[in-house]
């Protein structure tokens, strides 16, 4: 009887420890991940229509795709749209408060969010325009594929990063 009690107490303790640890782990991931809402592809993309490659492939290999396409377009005049930088830019659009697309200099820009975080400096936008073509960004009425611009509160994001509640400043 006593043994059973001890075992059950031990098990409960273990379970509680487990819960505690998992909480700590969660808190850790929140603390140390960028935890910023990753900009979603907006124009021309709906819930059913994804990127040209699976997300995991794109995360690791997008630079290879773009590089390959770059040489084919430059030298051979092959202008397929699947792996062209222009199409990336036309699709992954982030808007600012005034519903204008942001450039790569803005941290909210699709490419910049990750490259800022990973401290990767890219040269693409020294020459290429980082904003989508005008014909693409115009919100098309009654188009279900066009999702309203992402709300981005910079003060709130800053607060989340530093662990300070929004609106308060350090004395």
């Amino acid at each position: 009887m006593k043994q059973k009690r001890i075992i059950s107490l031990f098990l409960t303790g273990l379970a509680m420890l487990g819960l505690f640890l998992s909480n700590v782990a969660n808190a850790d991931s929140e603390l140390f991940s960028p935890h910023r809402e990753t900009p979603k592809a907006i124009a021309q993309v709906s819930e059913v229509q994804g990127c040209v490659e699976p997300t995991e492939v794109m995360r690791r290999q997008h630079m290879q795709f773009i590089l390959h396409q770059r040489d084919e377009t430059m030298h051979q005049g092959i202008r397929t749209t699947k792996h062209s930088l222009l199409e990336c830019i036309n699709c992954h659009v982030t808007y600012d408060e005034n519903q204008q697309p942001v450039s790569y200099k803005d941290e909210r820009h699709f490419c910049s969010t990750c490259h800022h975080y990973a401290a990767v400096h890219i040269d693409c936008f020294e020459c290429h325009n980082s904003k989508p073509m005008e014909s693409v960004v115009k919100p098309i009425p009654n188009n279900p594929d066009f999702i309203s611009p992402i709300k981005f509160d910079s003060a709130k994001a800053m607060a989340e990063q530093t662990g300070q509640p929004a609106g308060e400043t350090q004395p």
């Binding site: 202008r79 222009l86 450039s103 020459c127 325009n129 904003k131 073509m133």
Partner: peptide
């Protein structure tokens, strides 16, 4: 430094450029 380039005509500081015969149009 160049900003707001045309999507079909990327241009950037530190490179040489010239008439392209509007190659983006030729390709189409």
């Amino acid at each position: 430094t160049v900003e707001n380039q045309k999507p079909h005509a990327p241009r950037g500081k530190g490179t040489v450029e010239s008439c392209t015969f509007c190659v983006h149009k030729l390709d189409q």
